[in-house]
């Protein structure tokens, strides 16, 4: 999802026999549904995996500001402009909450940002796709936020306290995001002009498979996922979430009068689920290894913003230190 293919130990679920007494007690706490807090004992692998996962999630929110930010200055009405800006601002907020959650694990925000900029950490593949028309603001809200919510709701129960609390706040705030996007789609696809309908269908065509990719490749055999699930930092498998997403989204597309770009899409009465085509996973691996349509641009935008802001961060701190000295001298 926003954290795709997070590596854990790479060795599958550690068996109880291989656990130290502390690790056994730790796993017992998780199994009992207790929350792990920053100063509690935790295995090093748990801590590291969490930093990777929360960091990736945070980076996704920050880079995720860009494709939608691309349309803030072109929003068609004052109200749409305010809606979109508020939504993209929320994403900055969500990035902020998540960085703070990661910081409780002993890594600083600046360290995480640096790892993003030096490509030692990743962000979700979805944000490497371009937003080409206003309908993309609808599609992104509807599909991308829709997919994200599916992943984030269960994460409110994740075992790490600060992460779970950040997710609670994020889910609460995010409830308007998907509706905002779908509302744009209604205006364009259902009530709009021929041009607008065409834009809406085009946006769905371009975002459907990238949205399915957000859940990551099938992980039913993944050793990383199994360990993460044992630690309750991953709650559902990628396939479960993807199926749930398709099942919920298809009727929404029908309501809009839009066609999902998948000839194999059909309802299966026996399973009670839709059958659908897998996305092109070779494209997914290209995108996460840096070859998506916008990878270079997104990263260079983030790096430039960070570098351009260096003097501001430095100066604000310098001023704070000077004023502190001055007030101490005055006492």
């Amino acid at each position: 999802m926003y954290a795709q293919m997070v590596k854990s130990t790479g060795k599958g679920v550690q068996s109880r026999d291989d656990m130290s007494p502390e690790d056994k007690a730790f796993q017992d706490r998780i199994d009992r549904g207790e929350k792990i807090e920053p100063k509690d004992y935790m295995p090093e692998a748990y801590r590291k995996t969490l930093i990777r996962q929360i960091g990736q999630h945070a980076h996704s929110e920050i880079v995720g500001q860009l494709p939608e930010g691309n349309w803030i200055t072109r929003a068609p009405t004052l109200e749409r402009k305010a809606n979109l800006l508020a939504k993209v601002q929320d994403e900055a907020g969500h990035g902020l909450y998540l960085y703070c959650a990661a910081e409780t694990l002993g890594v600083s925000r600046d360290e995480l940002v640096e790892m993003l900029h030096s490509e030692r950490m990743k962000y979700s593949s979805i944000f490497n796709y371009p937003t080409l028309t206003w309908a993309d603001m609808g599609a992104v809200g509807w599909l991308v936020d829709g997919a994200a919510i599916m992943n984030q709701v269960p994460l409110q129960r994740t075992s790490y306290g600060p992460y779970a609390r950040a997710m609670v706040r994020i889910c609460k705030e995010e409830s308007f995001h998907q509706r905002q996007g779908y509302h744009i789609m209604i205006k364009m696809a259902k009530e709009g002009t021929a041009d607008q309908k065409r834009m809406a269908q085009d946006a769905l065509n371009r975002f459907w498979y990238p949205a399915l990719m957000m859940f990551g490749p099938s992980d039913k055999d993944s050793v990383h996922s199994a360990q993460s699930m044992a630690w309750k930092i991953k709650i559902n498998t990628n396939d479960e979430l993807r199926q749930k997403f398709v099942d919920e989204t298809v009727p929404q597309a029908e309501f809009l009068g839009l066609t999902i770009p998948d000839e194999n899409l059909r309802w299966n009465d026996e399973t009670g689920h839709y059958e659908f085509s897998e996305p092109d996973w070779s494209e997914f691996f290209e995108v996460i290894s840096g070859n998506g349509p916008c990878n270079a641009e997104r990263l260079s935008t983030r790096r430039k913003a960070w570098d351009d802001g260096a003097w501001v961060r430095e100066a604000m701190l310098a001023h704070a230190r000077k004023s502190q000295k001055r007030s101490q001298a005055a006492e």
């Binding site: 993209v88 900055a92 501001v312």
Partner: peptide, 14 residues
């Protein structure tokens, strides 16, 4: 609004 996503630090962006 042109600053959205590219401010010097998250707190200022918000």
């Amino acid at each position: 609004s042109e600053w959205c996503g590219v401010a010097p630090v998250l707190e200022e962006d918000i």
